[in-house]
Design a protein around this nucleic acid. Structure first.
Lengths: 337, 337
DNA sequence: CTGAAAGCGCTAACAT
DNA sequence: ATGTTAGCGCTTTCAG
């Protein structure tokens, strides 16, 4: 491995000068710079990032903890976050906890403050106050997708108004004339999708439409779970004309269950989700959903985390992401008897 | 930040002893160990992994370079690779090149040999000999999914017999009586999916079934591309009774295109893919496909890379992954006139 | 503008 | 069994 010292010797300067060339581009005489640059390319020198991190006291990498990368939403977020990190000269380290809080804790203990200067946390089963404790004496932690704008947590966060998303879905179904509506509620991690279903219920309640208790199921987030739950739902309540799911995976699974049992979507039953993952427009029929702006959320999260790293002593503050928006596609239509 | 030295002072020993406790668990007297451990928990000490990496000359992290994490195959591979890495005490750093060879090069230059002890490369647009050059004076590189077992590359690799996968798909369609078959060939990166289509063609040729030149399309890997291509394909050649796609995304897109144009899958047209991503069994109708063993490939890749890191001076060798296997689901059926 | 020197936190001989 | 010491490669004062 070629070191700074070797480059320095080759260029007949000292290590400090090479280091200066590598950063303070205007502190060194142009001809010296040239000589150093030449030595660097000739020797194929690459800085040792561990040494740099140790000396600088920061690693220029950000960690992103998420519960399960197999959930198609996360790759989209990862891609966006990575781009944002790269733009500001940071690496992104993806930590997949595999839905296991212990693995999450292990990651946090190991990398926060050493391998990573800060941590972006998506849904994990680690309690907020445990995260606070870690943030306190290691590195800043930011909750990248807080679902309760009305109740700021004890940690900095980017909040997404998912109640609004649920409300938009409800309004859409009401406008189409639906009154008998089933609900599929994903439990994310720790019941986090309550905001979505409560926003939905509130609008329904205001419209005088009662939610049929038999038509609500709480399940984990996946196409398979949505499929199974919808099968059960329609067995319990065959009269439903629409299904609201708190996220697109459940909705996609539900639509497939309906088709399997011979009910046509949207002619017989309408289906709506939340998130607008890529898959939503790729399935058949294309899914009507309430889109959150994944890229904006990732950008805000990364930007805010970097701020926190630079100025750690800030009171926890909440950044609000752009409001979710209804995207009408082919899985919903006017109710008809 | 709590350092080793502080722990040492607190436990009234020297840094070396603490370090010994942290690794050679049998070199230190039990009562001293206890004292040190107590100091560690009391102070909340966590080792600085950058310092450790610098001192040890290795970072205990592996990099995984892939072209685009939004392709649903990759998250599955990432999850498997990360588990394998974790089992052996390594971190996994995911490097998403965003289909941009420049970004790939930048990652390679920056992290190989410093942040990462070795690199797993999936499809990227970086040429093999460029990778070789990097591997030579930085860190080992392993091609994690080489598609040509019959032609070992100049780099260590895990090879998957995709020609066999193509052949299995061909045999399946032939057995079902199909003779007019369209092909959707993904170009992955750099035409890597040739093996699949060649394996398919060879079987067809042996069976005396000619491939209709008009019924072959070369496209990029995605559901959307598969959808568009299938639309075009069926316009050119409406008589086709089956479609073979070199990967599941294309196949899923194709099936959706067929349904959109009113052709029933599999009653009117059969569709088969390769890979068996999770989505394959989640779409409707569930996709018949040729499964590769993603977990095995990831495990082999990680294991082999770690070997290479430990014993770098090895001639490039090829590890063969388990043979792909046909998985019959609901998207193919017997041909009928 | 450039050099000398100290130190980041940890590991790994080598002494004791 | 524990302490001493010398780095790992880089950054960063501080002198010159």
């Amino acid at each position: 491995m070629v070191t700074l010292a070797e480059v320095a010797k080759h260029a007949k300067v000292t290590a400090a000068t090479v280091s200066n060339v590598l950063r303070n581009r205007d502190k060194v005489r142009p001809e010296t710079v040239e000589r150093v640059l030449k030595a660097i390319t000739e020797l194929g020198y690459r800085p040792n990032l561990n040494a740099r991190a140790l000396a600088e006291g920061r690693s220029s990498t950000l960690a992103l903890m998420l519960s399960n990368i197999s959930n198609p939403f996360y790759p989209e977020f990862v891609a966006a976050a990575e781009r944002a990190a790269r733009r500001t000269g940071h690496f992104l380290m993806v930590c997949n906890t595999d839905d296991d809080a212990e693995i999450g804790r292990a990651y946090l203990n190991q990398i926060a403050g050493t391998l990573a200067d800060g941590v972006l946390v998506m849904n994990t089963d680690i309690a907020i106050n445990e995260l606070c404790a870690s943030a306190l004496h290691r590195a800043p932690i930011l909750l990248a997708m807080w679902e309760h704008p009305e109740a700021p947590p004890a940690l900095p966060c980017v909040a997404v108004d998912f109640a609004h998303a649920g409300a938009l879905a409800a309004k859409h179904l009401l406008e189409l004339g639906h009154r008998k509506i089933g609900m599929l509620i994903g439990d994310g991690c720790g019941g986090l999708q309550d905001a979505r279903s409560n926003g939905f219920r509130a609008v329904m309640h205001d419209a005088g439409v009662e939610t049929d208790a038999a038509a609500v199921l709480q399940i984990r987030d996946s196409i398979d779970a949505g499929y199974a739950a919808c099968m059960q739902l329609m067995a319990n309540a065959p009269h439903l004309s629409a299904i609201f799911a708190t996220n697109d995976l459940l909705a996609i699974g539900a639509a497939q269950a309906l088709m399997t049992m011979g009910r046509v979507v949207p002619d017989d039953v309408s289906v709506i989700g939340i998130t607008d993952i890529q898959l939503a427009h790729q399935v058949h029929p294309a899914l009507t959903t309430v889109a959150i702006n994944t890229t904006a959320i990732a950008d805000l999260s990364v930007a805010r985390l970097i701020q926190l790293i630079q100025q750690p002593a800030q009171p926890p503050s909440m950044v609000i992401a752009p409001l979710p928006e209804l995207v009408v596609r082919a899985s919903t239509r006017q109710w008809r008897p």
